[in-house]
Simulated assay, not measured.
Amino acid sequence: MEQVLRPIYQERASQANTLGVILVEKNNERSNVTDTFDTILLIIVKEAIQPVFTKHYSYDDHKVALHTITEEQIRKWLLIGSNKKVVDWIFFGRVLFDRNEFFHKLKIELQEFPFNGRKIKIGIQFSKLIRRYLEGKEYFEKGHYLDAYSHVVDSLHYLGRLSIINSGLYPEVTVWAQVKKIEPAIYKLYEELVTSNESLEKRLELLFLASEFLIHSRTDDGARHILEVMQTKEFWTIQELHDHHELKNYSVDLEVFIEYLVGKGYILAELDISKSEAVFHRHYKVNLAMLEKIRGN
């Protein structure tokens, strides 16, 4: 297959803008990684008008997907965790072209997982966990058990991903296989949720209790990144928080996360006079005592 595709990727490899080319072939163990295609060609470029550009090819009875992706987009996916297959492609794909050892250096970076990168990734995953947990609990209290079940499964998934990240690894596509080795307690909760003979209501009740404890025990780590960003100035408006280049990655979960941390005392909400005597601006600042506690742990 590589020989057949060589004219396609060699043309791109010759361009100065191309950083590297990886070939990923479907096999029985990791067939889900290639999105039903027989082969994936991943081409990373320095910059492009479109951050992601995809073409499909056929050869005999083989299907091939070619993805040309900017370095900035790849790094964003790796940070946010919104395209988990990319990690597998980088780790398990065959490098066909590697300008200035781009892929070699990226793999080392992923394996070492710099501490600051972990802090940001933990914060983002924790904010997603909080949203799913709070929404699921609301569904449960209203008696919408199937919707609550869906949210609890997602919550456990984020808890599992957090345990993997805390261990210094990147979550792969087969995240539960990783969780089973790294944090069996979370895996056991997931197993009980999907296999228990208890009623759905009872399973959810127990899982919400267990999840609440697990979330509480991880709040210091989950809050660390956003608090360290916020300590750089005394007060923040919500729009200033949305506009910050690192906090933008929290996306739609940012406001729910901030309100959760206000409720837990990690962030303080301050009122300021507005044009109306009856309405006040709401500004936010770090509870420095909580930040010191986190740093001391």
Score class of each variant (00 low, 15 high):
residue 135 E to T: 15
residue 170 Y to K: 06
residue 152 V to T: 08
residue 121 K to R: 14
residue 128 K to T: 10
residue 38 D to N: 08
residue 229 V to H: 06
residue 137 K to W: 11
residue 290 M to A: 07
residue 115 F to Q: 14
residue 272 D to T: 00
residue 157 H to R: 02
residue 48 A to Q: 02
residue 190 Y to H: 15
residue 53 F to T: 01
residue 266 Y to K: 02
residue 179 V to Y: 10
residue 33 V to E: 12
residue 110 L to E: 06
residue 100 N to H: 12
residue 36 T to C: 09
residue 208 F to S: 10
residue 190 Y to D: 11
residue 284 Y to H: 08
residue 37 F to K: 12
residue 269 A to C: 03
residue 264 K to P: 03
residue 47 E to W: 10
residue 103 F to C: 05
residue 2 E to L: 14
residue 206 L to P: 02
residue 128 K to H: 13
residue 240 E to V: 10
residue 66 L to T: 03
residue 194 V to H: 07
residue 158 Y to K: 09
residue 144 H to P: 02
residue 77 W to P: 03
residue 117 G to P: 09
residue 100 N to F: 08
residue 213 F to Y: 14
residue 70 T to A: 05
residue 48 A to K: 10
residue 60 D to S: 04
residue 187 Y to E: 11
residue 253 D to N: 09
residue 98 D to K: 01
residue 124 I to N: 00
residue 241 L to Y: 04
residue 116 N to F: 07
residue 250 Y to P: 07
residue 109 E to P: 00
residue 289 A to T: 10
residue 50 Q to Y: 03
residue 159 L to W: 03
residue 2 E to H: 15
residue 189 L to G: 02
residue 171 P to D: 04
residue 37 F to Y: 02
residue 121 K to C: 04
residue 1 M to R: 04
residue 94 R to M: 14
residue 255 E to T: 13
residue 48 A to H: 11
residue 265 G to D: 07
residue 143 G to W: 00
residue 161 R to L: 05
residue 3 Q to M: 08
residue 32 N to G: 14
residue 137 K to T: 12
residue 193 L to R: 14
residue 30 R to V: 06
residue 111 Q to W: 00
residue 261 L to I: 04
residue 229 V to K: 10
residue 214 L to Q: 11
residue 55 K to L: 02
residue 35 D to E: 15
residue 94 R to Q: 15
residue 68 T to K: 08
residue 204 L to K: 01
residue 141 E to F: 01
residue 187 Y to A: 12
residue 285 K to M: 00
residue 272 D to N: 03
residue 135 E to I: 15
residue 186 I to Q: 13
residue 129 L to K: 04
residue 125 Q to D: 08
residue 141 E to R: 10
residue 145 Y to D: 08
residue 195 T to S: 12
residue 111 Q to A: 14
residue 88 D to I: 03
residue 54 T to R: 15
residue 116 N to T: 13
residue 197 N to V: 09
residue 134 L to F: 07
residue 97 F to W: 07
residue 192 E to H: 14
residue 124 I to L: 07
residue 195 T to W: 08
residue 181 K to R: 14
residue 52 V to T: 13
residue 159 L to S: 03
residue 190 Y to W: 05
residue 47 E to S: 10
residue 207 L to Y: 01
residue 263 G to T: 00
